[in-house]
Amino acid sequence: MALPPADPSDAPTRRTPLVIGLGNDDRGDDAAGLAVVRALGSRTLGAARVLEGPREATGLLDLWTGVERVIVVDAVRSGRPPGTVVRVEVGPHGFPSSVRPSSTHGLSLAEAVGLGISLGAMPRSLVVYGVEAGDFAAGRGLSGPVARGVVEAARRVADELAGAALGAGEG
């Protein structure tokens, strides 16, 4: 999986929307973010770059620093029914106080956002789509409700990008 970093000197790359899916293929519903970008990969997304994200969060800083518009898709756990899709806008101070993302291993997306804000290594706009996960059992693949959530998340991300492109065209 090649991860070409955004070249900050490359203005067209910075202006191209970037979609990053996170997750672990071997841990059941944790693969939801990867499944969403794979579903998006088969659609026409205009000029958006669609990537399967780095396995560790510090790599996100390299990918998204200076990029104008970034959407990250990841599995989440909030107590909602599995497969529920949530959309969160990450502001200049990080995640909204109502959202407390966490990870038990290594650095989490929330820590990448925290480091990125401290270091001035953030995209201009960052939206996170979360697909509520149910089962993280090793080797199981996506559960039924989460697989349906993946389809919905992919459609919403595509719609958001299309809306952005439309908006840009109109602008």
């Binding site: 800083l61 820590e111 925290g114 480091l115 401290s118 270091l119 001035g120 290594a121």
Partner: peptide, 17 residues
């Protein structure tokens, strides 16, 4: 944590990364 460290010592943490 490193995030709070990075707010006051961004250069050091950037070196680390």
């Amino acid at each position: 944590d490193a995030i709070r460290l990075a707010k006051d010592h961004p250069e050091a943490v950037a070196h680390g990364l």
